[in-house]
Design a protein around this nucleic acid. Structure first.
Lengths: 214, 214
DNA sequence: TCAGACTTTGACCGCTCGGTCAAACCTTTC
DNA sequence: GAAAGGTTTGACCGAGCGGTCAAAGTCTGA
């Protein structure tokens, strides 16, 4: 599983990891090269020695996540089983990845809602997921209108990522930690129920459509 | 409709508006007092003369949005009609507000995903909406588990806000501008269909529950 | 007309930022 | 043991930051 980072020394990766964690916590602009060096326990100049600039370092962080995310979804994208099974598989892989890399949704959202100079990179990475969803849903959704596949793409993305963005803010009103293993399992069950419910409703909708066509 | 800003001069509000727009575009950290002054067409020192500090200025921006949002939802919160009607009313008010203040979801997400020192303020503001949703859904959802009201709160929030976060990034793959009036209408119809579908499914779920109890 | 109160300005301050660089410090090799 | 090449350091740079301030400009009421 090459990610273009194998040639880098251990030290370089330590710096990358430190930057990754810090930027996830407080955002790109709020993190300084000094902060990164301090977290990694090295001299600030090393950050530039290994990564050239703060922007390039951030590029590499995003690229590492994209690569890992792509890889995590690759297996799930294989077209076996019913539509329902396939969607469940991808949603599960998506949730798995989010749970294992909680900084990731934060980085993406920071890019999308901030001045992020990496907006195009985010799109380039989101695109395959978007295309796959459109392809898979083509047979169960109308081609256009409020029930078109693209709407469900955004809906499901919102459901999955929204939890990781909003739940931590609500933890004082939650019963327990919304990021605990139990809470995440409960969320997963909720998302599964949602997917099943939506697919059933779409079935019913297309039957209705066919009847009215007679 | 007092918002605590009536005592401020026109000039002060111009500065607030400039800061509002800029921060929405590129984020709090990336905007300087010089940028704000330039956008407002005034001397930088005026920013501090009227608002004290950059942080206080940002507080006021958030407060103004919160106040407007609260006001926009106030009418919708009144408990008339069926659960379905009430939820539709609030969701519509939510969508209306988002459409009219497109910077708002960006600011909130910036706070939640960045180092935002205003996290507690965001929660304080989110709380009434959360509580209202729990109250309204109490009679149609189980008290605990994957179909509990709190899950639907996050799900619906994610569906509504996710669109405004993700759709602009996908506009090159959309057919037309996802933020155009027509696209937003289509999205609204989608959300309405979602709400109806979920409420029906919850009905069916509770009937199933009752039968298995016999 | 002029005093007094508010507005607005440009110059300035201390500080932190991203980034550079030459020198010092390892290792490895012969 | 010294040449050589990569690694690590602290000192330094110019630029931009948030914020201050004294002075100049403007308005108003007596």
């Amino acid at each position: 599983m090459p990610n273009g980072l194998e040639s880098k020394t251990e030290r370089a990766i330590e710096i990358l990891d430190a930057a990754d964690a810090l930027i996830g916590e407080v955002g790109y602009d709020a993190v300084s090269a000094r902060d990164i060096a301090a977290r990694a326990g090295v001299n600030k100049a090393l950050v530039f020695y290994y990564w050239g600039s703060k922007a390039e370092l951030f590029d590499k962080i995003l690229e590492r996540y994209y690569q890992a995310h792509r890889q995590a979804l690759a297996g799930a994208f294989e077209a076996e089983g019913s539509t329902r099974e396939r969607i469940h598989r991808v949603v599960d892989a998506y949730l798995d990845f989010m749970e294992q890399h909680r900084v990731y949704p934060r980085l993406i959202q920071q890019q999308l809602t901030g001045g992020g100079t990496h907006r195009e990179a985010v799109l380039r990475h989101l695109a395959p997921f978007f295309d796959w969803t459109l392809l898979q849903l083509a047979e169960v959704t109308p081609r256009t209108g409020p029930l078109a596949a693209r709407q469900f793409y955004l809906t499901i993305s919102g459901i999955v990522t929204g939890y990781f963005t909003y739940a931590p803010a609500l933890d004082s009103r939650w019963d327990g930690d919304p990021m605990s293993a139990e809470a995440l399992d409960e969320r997963r069950a909720h998302v599964h129920w949602m997917v099943d419910t939506l697919l059933s409703a779409l079935d019913a909708e297309s039957e209705k459509q066919e009847k009215s066509r007679d």
